[in-house]
Structures are given as C-alpha cells and as structure tokens.
Write a protein that binds this DNA or RNA. Structure first.
Lengths: 209, 209
DNA sequence: CTGATTTCGTACCGCACGGTACAGAATAGA
DNA sequence: TCTATTCTGTACCGTGCGGTACGAAATCAG
C-alpha cells in the first residue's frame, strides 16, 4: 500500500514542482521515439524535458522506469487509436481504422517516424534486455487483443467462418510493424495507404461489411 | 589506386595473421545481428571474434567500417536468397521464394532471430546515424530491385497488366520487414509460413504461374 | 645470423554514460 | 519568524565506451 499522493487530498508540503510532469513525459516520449531506449541518453532526456537529472530521478525513478511510463503515455496518446479501433462494429471496420489510423500516426509531422513499440528496443545491448522483452510483450498483447476481436467477429457473422483469427491477427500485426519500418525509411502517408488498399482488398469479410 | 595485396602475388612479408578474417567476420556478424550496431560493444566483438582490439582495427578499420563489411558478408551469406529469388522465372515464383526463404532465414537456429537490415540500426543514437542511413538505403535498394523484377513480369505477361509494381514491391517489403519484427518477437517458422500463405492467396499473377 | 616488416598483446587515453551526494532555495504550518 | 519538508542545481562518482601507443613476437630476404 504505497499511496504517495491522493488526488482528493493534494496537500503538498515542501517546495513545489517547478515543471509539469505531463509535459515532461511528452518530451521524453519524443526523445525515446526518435532514438530508442538505448540511443536516448540521460543528457538527451534532461535537455529535452528541461529538467535537471536529480529532478528526473525524483519524479520518474531511473531510466527504465521513465521509459515504461513513457510507454503508457504513448499508448494513451499517439497510439490510442489502436485500442479505439477495436470498438468498431465489424471486423473490416476494425482493421480499416486500425491500419489507416496507424498509417496516419506513423507519418504525422507531429511525431517522429515509426512506432515506439517497434523501434524502442528491437536489437540492443544487454542493459536494455528487460525493456526489449517488455516491448515484445506489449506487441504480442496488442496482437492478442485483435485476435479476440476477430474471433468475436466470426461469432457475430461479419467475418467468414473459415477464417483463421490467429493468422489474420498476426498478418495485420505484420503489416503494422512493416509499415513502421517503412515509415522509419521515409515512406509517405499516401504510400502506406496504397499498401493498406492492397491488404483490404483481400480481407475475408462477409457481404460488404 | 590502393591495391594492398594482389591475390596472384601472396608474398606477405612480416608476421602472418593469426586468425581467419572470414571466420572473424562471421562472428562479428553474429554479434551485430543480435545486438544491433549500437548495442554491440567493441568488447563484445573482440571477444566473439577471438582477436584483440588492435588486430580488429588493423584488419577492418573502425567499428563502422567493420559493420559495413559485415553487411556485405550478410548479403552474400545468410541473406543471399533475396538476390537469388529475383532470378525465378515468374513473379509468383520470385515472391514465393523470397518470402519462404526469408521466413526460413528469420527462424533458423543457426542465426539470431530477425533481419540485420531491419534491426541493425532502426532507432539509435546520433553516433550511429550514418549507419542508420546506410541500412535505409539498402532496404530501399532491395525494394527497388523487386520493383524492377515485377515490371519485367508485367511485360512478360505473368503478372496482371493493371498491377502496380511499385505498390506491390513495397507491400512485399512490408511483409518481409514485419516478419523480421515478428521473428524478433519469437514467431516460429510455421507461423510465418501461415502469413505467407495469406499473402500469396491474393497475388495477382496471371493464370496459375 | 642480421635487419626489415608486419602482427600481437598489454596497457592506456579521453570521454560520455547512468546515477547520486549535498547544500541551498522554496513552500506550508506553527 | 522558525521549523519541517520537498524540490533544485552543481558538481561529482565509478564504469564502460571507442580508439590507440608501444614494445615484444613472428615471419621473410639476404
């Protein structure tokens, strides 16, 4: 039971924070996104976050804890379209929104190119190994969520009953991860949309749902 | 004109090399493949290559030059199936061999999981920036070679004339790069083959070529 | 043998890394 | 104002990084 600060009782004695943790996370996200976990140094981070090193450690723990907080921040912010897409009424709408939304995010001028889940720590030194595994886990988790959504779609009848939800979810995951690499290589939004059109043409949805 | 040593005149005076550069490159490849350019330290490399640091610098130049030599070694060795696949007689055979060959390589027990071109330096620190750009260039080069092969296939009639070679080549590149991320996440060979089946089902080849 | 040449192994360089000690500044409650 | 508490900024720690100086060892030509 380690409840440092309750929202309903903001009675902070002592010197107040001189920065907005939310903004600081935003800026840390930008650095990790561009350089990956290993490539982002503490100097890069503190400079971008406009705080000193001890403030970072007091507010976020060490580098790895900061990265995990940044991952949550990313999931709730720039990557929130993924979770939202699963709520579309049909499997085709889910996949459409998932892919187009991802393509938009990957090529937005407001973000670095690519996906933090993919680029954050793909191949890295030993010191980043736990972070690498964390990202693998998150990628597989997203894939599993899509698989369950496709299974539901089969039961609801808008996906052909002989479709394989596991393979289809992995196929879409591959498209997303491949698009991420493409975005990091300089692919444009319209180029990615052209690929999505190819993917959707063969989507095994029933009727025209 | 810097011809250090001609093959036909191996008259090396001085102390002979105590290691096989080819084997050493093999071992360096393994390290870079698993850890990426930034994540592989010189200590990792010299330990794996079983040579001392000055020997490495004398034989291969600095770390970046070694990495570029390793890239060539990779292209001619584990990744040689890519170039070979382009010589298949039809576009469908090209893509089949390209994808299945890649899936085999990505999940071979003899290699680290994933593709060096993708994982070598996707997001990294500033010091690896030129290496990152080199890998982007190689990825785009491979994609361009496939595009040209598909254009030839249209002229030869085994690919539907309204197919878009640029988009199709990018689509296959995305599949390959996505499979690389999947392999790094632990996907098995049969799982990747399942995805390839999905891709090939909608390949726009004429007749059953 | 001697001498020229090239590689080998140790031991080291400056530097940037992630992480922290510590003293002073800013607030709240008394 | 005084005290307790928390945050800020400087200055530093040990470590590992990429890269190298240098003398010993190994070969060949003569």
């Amino acid at each position: 039971m380690k409840s440092k600060r309750h929202k309903e009782l903001p009675k902070p004695t002592g010197r107040p924070l001189s920065f907005d943790p939310h903004k600081a996370l935003d800026r840390a996200l930008d650095v990790f996104w561009r350089k990956g976990y290993d490539g982002a140094s503490l100097s890069d981070l503190t400079k971008a976050m406009r705080i000193n090193r001890p403030s970072l450690y007091a507010a976020f723990g060490d580098k790895e804890k900061l990265f995990r907080k940044v991952l949550d921040h990313y999931a709730e912010g720039p990557a929130s379209h993924s979770r939202a897409a699963l709520q579309e009424p049909t499997s085709r709408a889910v996949v459409e929104r998932l892919l187009y939304g991802t393509a938009d995010m990957l090529t937005s001028d407001r973000n670095p190119r690519g996906c933090l889940w993919v680029q954050g720590a793909l191949a890295c030194g030993d010191s980043a190994d736990s972070v690498r595994k964390e990202l693998i886990s998150r990628r597989l988790g997203g894939e599993a969520a899509l698989r369950q959504r496709l299974q539901r779609a089969i039961m609801e009848g808008d996906l052909l009953p002989d479709a394989n939800p596991t393979s289809l979810a992995r196929y879409i995951a591959i498209i997303i991860q491949g698009m991420s690499v493409q975005a990091a290589s300089g692919a444009t939004r319209s180029q990615l949309r052209g690929i999505i059109d190819i993917v959707l043409e063969s989507w095994p949805s029933r009727r025209n749902t």
